[in-house]
Design a binder for these strands. Structure first.
Lengths: 211, 211, 211, 211
DNA sequence: TATGAATGAGTATTCATTCAT
DNA sequence: TATGAATGAATACTCATTCAT
């Protein structure tokens, strides 16, 4: 019977790899986990499969992780780190003083491309991993995205006469998330995304300025 | 090993129940499926569990369904039928000629309440059932929602000077979906939904009218 | 890591066999368990081995028992039932009024022969099964043996001028148990048991009569 | 699959520790083995656990012992040495010429207290370690106990008119063993042991003198 | 000598599915 | 039609043991 509640320890690592060889093994397991999720889905993920694809023994898997879910958690953590690094890099380069709409469009595009890059993995994580929302990394990402948004908002508020209503920030995040998710995971490839992102950026900017 | 591709026959019924008793059995299985999904998640769903909860023998399950996924498919079909019935009922009662914003708000509220009612089941279906988007009923629902929206749009277009841009309809559906999903499945109960739905309706109406 | 505390449910049967075929399967599993314990010891007992020796599938084992310990518990239960049946049969046949020493010798011999019969199985149960003393059947047997002894004592007390001291009954049971255990499980076969049982019966009778 | 026959080499040490540090490591492993047996039982004993509790590496364990059973063997050896030392010390202090019953009582009490001291460890060794009776130390202890008893008997035979029958010595050892085992490992703590030991000593002395 | 990462055979357990009754 | 006993492939996880450093 599948479990329905998860303990923090399900997602914790057992032992941090010390030597270089250990680090490589752990990395191989996490990568193997990603490949299997993409190709076989969460139901096709097993510790034995991870060991095989990673080229390590099953014993080594349990040396470092208490079970497959901890490897998934680590994978999500790594992906969140990638998002964070990308956002920080972009933020340093951006100058939203000139044009709020351009800045908005720029970020939407960046996030869209990152999601596209991990399309199949993202699909499985979102639509199949039952505990995704309980993972520390997921929770942390949501918090950080809010902070980035709020910081950007405060920053630009000085430049523009921003008059966002109370719920606008919430509607923005959920709307953008809904659109990007559909665009990346559901919409047919035929649907041209650039125009949609243009329109989305425009509308979001309008929400910010006009309230 | 979990499968990654599903055939149409995985979701088909084996035999339509003829007698009243058979109908009751099938209904019991579908209801049992719903209860187990809510309480134990997709990983906790098994054909044996369905038989036990439904109070029928495991043999009977395979008499009517090729496997558990066909029962899930049937459950989704029933839920889609419920949505459809609700929407049709609402549409008949609504007169959007008077106030586009009120009509919009009215529908958002109706959908929100229906989603709330099936909160936990919806959560499992969306975040755990790997083949949800491949189900005929799911695909059909998306098409019908589009049609309802377009029909409503055509109807109201005569009343108002609607000037929606090419992508507006797409952005509306994805934004509304994203907001409702978050509101129902992710947001803390403390977050007061009525105000958010007010704001959402207002913004969506504005998109329609102002383009 | 091996467990150190056992729950009652570890020893309970999952489902009572109803049909004749089921009963035969369960009996085959219990017999297989006995054969494996005799030949390979408790460390060599596994659910897979039980299934193989019993000629049933591993699935069937778990159909009726939650694990191997429940099968061991059932085996002990059956053996206790055999002891009980033997004792009751002997008691009905015995007339201790004539000769207390003969009656004592008679019972010691009967118990000794039963223990001899299950020599290797008994050895493994006593010296290897960690939870033997926690089993309901074991506890029950101890209680019943005390009762039989006390009843016999009360009965014979009327015939003889029995003057057993307070601790004599306790010393009798532990001494007899110690001697029989050693005789059956430890002593070399060369050691002629009949003479020892004669001497033991004589001494135990003396304890009873002379206090 | 657990083994059922043990070779002498399973219980032999690989290498005698030379330096002081090595001696300390070996001692730590043996002590760790005792602690684990007490707390987790034989099923909870593993070489990895021994290494961890002893604070040495798993490699070191295999440097000095061929496996966990050799460590158990060494532990039993140490315990037997403790019994031997205790007995020799007691024997030197005892003068059984004055009172045979007092001497008997004295020894029973000494052995009882030693068994009490190692109660839980003794329970696991006796009821769970499958090869306990095959261990050289165990065999040696049985022989020595017989010798001590015989020597004491010869010595006291000169003082008293001892007329023990052929099997009396055997019955004494098995009865005493059975009673002490039950008193230490099975009987509830409520059962007052001193009175029982008094009665046992009295009866055993009587066997010696009266035959 | 000492370390501890890595190995992999072995064991418990589940669950979709079949088929004799 | 309905039943439910039986099957066995698949999966999670442990632990004795080796060997490169």
């Amino acid at each position: 019977m599948g479990q329905i509640r998860w303990k923090v320890s399900d997602f914790a690592v057992k032992k941090e790899p010390g030597q270089a060889r250990s680090k490589a093994s752990v990395q191989a397991m996490v990568q193997a986990c990603a490949r299997i999720l993409e190709r076989r889905g969460y139901a096709g993920l097993s510790t034995n499969a991870i060991a095989e694809v990673a080229g390590v023994s099953i014993g080594s898997v349990y040396e470092y992780f208490p079970g497959k879910d901890a490897i998934v958690a680590r994978l999500v953590q790594d992906m969140v780190a990638e998002v964070r690094a990308m956002l920080e890099g972009r933020l340093a380069l951006t100058d939203s003083r000139n044009d709020l709409n351009s800045a908005m469009r720029y970020f939407l595009g960046a996030i869209y491309r990152l999601m596209r890059k991990h399309r199949e993995l993202l699909r499985v994580l979102v639509f199949q991993v039952p505990y995704l929302h309980q993972l520390p990394a997921t929770r942390q990402l949501e918090i950080e995205l809010q902070q980035v948004l709020m910081a950007g908002l405060d920053y630009t508020r000085e430049q523009y006469a921003l008059s966002a209503q109370p719920h606008t920030l919430y509607l923005m995040t959920t709307s953008v998330a809904g659109t990007l998710m559909h665009l990346v995971l559901v919409a047919p490839p035929a649907m041209e995304p650039e125009g949609i992102l243009d329109a989305l950026a425009e509308k979001m900017t309008a929400w910010l300025i006009e309230g």
